[in-house]
């Protein structure tokens, strides 16, 4: 039966194989003087063993199909908002990016009122900028027009 442990174990074993394949580009060194590829290879081998063991012994874990993914749309939307923030942060500047991302999350995703959304997004974006950039002198990116 396909269980959570088996799915995860399979994925881990796959990752281990990829790492082993990618490590071939680096010098392995010897047992006495390990090279840069030495530790990754050893760890990948260990992970491969653990992953395989999980597949073998994971029959009693809960079934993969019983895992509820009901909130996936929401999770993807939130993730997309964060990805937008990461993309825009150094292009549009901190304040613009955060205002837009917050407005999307509050206004579109959580259906808050327009006045609340706009005021809250602006206040949090500008407030946190003041606290970190102006007061604590942690430089945050500025976009066009110095925003």
């Amino acid at each position: 039966m396909l269980t959570t442990d088996r799915v995860a174990g399979g994925a881990l074993a796959l990752i281990a194989l990829v790492v082993l394949w990618e490590s071939r580009k680096l010098p392995l060194g010897s047992l006495r003087t390990p090279g840069p590829a030495y530790t990754p290879m050893v760890l990948a081998a260990i992970l491969l063993v653990f992953g395989t063991l999980l597949v073998v012994t994971g029959g009693r874990a809960s079934a993969f199909r019983s895992v509820g993914w009901a909130e996936w749309r929401h999770a993807v939307a939130i993730f997309a908002a964060c990805a937008f923030a990461a993309l825009a942060l150094e292009r549009l500047g901190y304040r613009v990016t955060v205002t837009v991302a917050l407005a999307f999350l509050l206004g579109v995703l959580e259906r808050k009122g327009i006045v609340f959304t706009v005021v809250f997004s602006l206040a949090l974006a500008i407030g946190s900028f003041l606290l970190f950039d102006t007061l604590l002198r942690v430089p945050l990116p500025r976009g066009p027009f110095g925003l």
Partner: peptide
């Protein structure tokens, strides 16, 4: 629904602030 967008803001801000790097985000 109001708290988590604020937390997200601080997650992104905090992670960015450590090295000033988007790669960290």
């Amino acid at each position: 629904p109001v708290l988590y967008p604020s937390i997200l803001t601080f997650c992104i801000l905090g992670v960015y602030a450590v090295n000033g790097s988007v790669v960290d985000v």
